[in-house]
């Protein structure tokens, strides 16, 4: 996935698009991550000032949600569902294999709504059902 380099000017332009939204803080953080790949810590103060709220409020939202991260993502992102339906078809073993092979690129996921065709993995945003190590390697290319 391609992201823009973080910049305060670009962030301010993006935030302006949310000016009329009610309750914009979470949307603002999600927008930062979508554009820059992560939420730069500097954006906490920028978002707080822009929407006339406190840094504590923004920090609180940023740290609550699993999706949001404050460091740049790895080149490839692999999210493996480790919830019950995928556990029933071997996700507990698969996640170990994938972590051993791809390390930091691998994240635990909790349900992609593909529970009849598990194990399910998202590789760079692409959904893979009946996932195996081979299928993941193929999708990662």
């Amino acid at each position: 996935m391609k992201y823009r380099p973080w910049s305060q000017d670009a962030a301010l332009v993006l935030l302006a698009s949310l000016r009329d939204e009610m309750g914009p803080v979470l949307m603002a953080l999600q927008l930062m991550q979508k554009e820059f790949g992560y939420v730069d810590k500097a954006s906490i103060e920028i978002i707080a000032n822009f929407f006339n709220t406190s840094r504590a409020e923004v920090h609180g939202v940023l740290t609550f949600y699993h999706d949001l991260r404050t460091t740049a993502p790895t080149t490839h992102e692999i999210s493996i569902c480790v919830a019950e339906a995928c556990q029933a078809v071997g996700a507990r073993v698969l996640v170990q294999e994938v972590k051993a092979k791809f390390g930091d690129e691998t994240h635990d996921g909790y349900c992609f709504g593909n529970c009849a065709l598990g194990p399910t993995v998202m590789v760079n945003g692409e959904i893979i059902g009946r996932a195996t190590l081979e299928k993941i390697e193929q999708a990662r290319r």
């Binding site: 009610m22 803080v25 949307m27 409020e57 939202v61 949600y65 999706d67």
Partner: peptide
């Protein structure tokens, strides 16, 4: 409105908080 990876936000009042842009408490 798109969620942000929080299971508890499926609880209706946590969902409201989340739509309001807050922590899903």
């Amino acid at each position: 409105r798109v969620g942000a990876g929080s299971y508890v936000c499926g609880e209706e009042t946590a969902m409201l908080e989340s739509i309001e842009g807050k922590r899903g408490v």
